[in-house]
């Protein structure tokens, strides 16, 4: 069972995630957008959206550090377990609270503002459900697991993180995950569900974060497509030269 849950399911989701993005990028560039609803409503969005997104950036950063940096490395540079714990819980909590507050505002807005709600697709709703569950479970793990230590102390850096790295290295060790508390297990599973949905939702906009803007010239020049009329030449009939 644990092999199925913590090896098979994650790999399937990861495959869908990668293949889905390739497919979307190839066949649906036009649909690749944030689908912003700011035009409809701005007052709540102005508070909720930056809160959520900046909180989320913090959360993602925290996960990268927590999951990918082995404990031995931080030990080696002399960061004690306690120091790490305080920093991680403090930072995680701040980012988490921002995210949750932002999310609550955004979901409230989406539900109560007529035009925004009618522009919400079924896919959006499913995605919101997954996203909300992942975030709530994550917060639960932080608060109940790491601060109040309900159900005993658990050092995820010796369990979940190691499993995650083994998973990325294609040598998955399901046992590590099977021994983790239920909260962590669920968080990971629902997160993988979200990854599988990802390429088919508006979440794809994460991968178009426009960092290139910082360095490109202001005005972009491009040459006219080398074709007359509305059709590109059919395959096998491309012009020479």
């Amino acid at each position: 069972m644990s092999v199925f849950l913590f090896v098979v399911v994650p790999y399937v989701c990861l495959t869908v995630f990668v293949a889905g993005h390739l497919w979307r990028c190839r066949y649906d560039k036009f649909g690749w957008t944030t689908r912003s609803s700011q035009l409809y409503e701005n007052r709540l969005l102005r508070i909720g959206s930056p809160l959520f997104h900046f909180g989320m950036l913090g959360v993602v950063g925290g996960h990268v550090i927590g999951l990918l940096v082995p404990q031995s490395w931080t030990d080696a540079v002399g960061i004690t377990e306690h120091m790490y714990h305080v920093a991680a819980v403090g930072g995680g909590l701040a980012a988490g609270v921002m995210t949750v507050v932002g999310m609550v505002i955004l979901i409230y807005r989406r539900r109560t503002t007529g035009p925004v709600f009618s522009a919400t697709t079924v896919m959006d709703k499913v995605m919101y459900a997954f996203l909300a569950i992942v975030i709530v479970l994550g917060m639960w793990n932080t608060i109940a697991g790491s601060i109040m230590t309900i159900g005993g102390e658990y050092n995820y850096r010796e369990g979940v993180s190691v499993w995650y790295r083994s998973f990325l290295a294609f040598q998955p060790d399901a046992a590590l995950m099977a021994n983790a508390p239920l909260g962590f297990q669920l968080h990971a599973l629902v997160a993988f569900g979200l990854f599988a949905l990802w390429p088919f939702t508006r979440l794809v906009h994460v991968f178009s974060a426009p960092v290139g803007y910082l360095t490109r010239p202001y005005i972009v020049y491009r040459s006219r497509d080398d074709q007359l009329g509305s059709h590109s030449p059919r395959r096998g009939w491309d012009r020479v030269g």
């Binding site: 178009s208 426009p210 803007y213 490109r216 972009v220 020049y221 491009r222 040459s223 006219r224």
Partner: peptide
């Protein structure tokens, strides 16, 4: 930000 708007040469 995306550089999607361009001026045709």
């Amino acid at each position: 930000p995306s550089g999607a708007i361009y001026k045709r040469e």
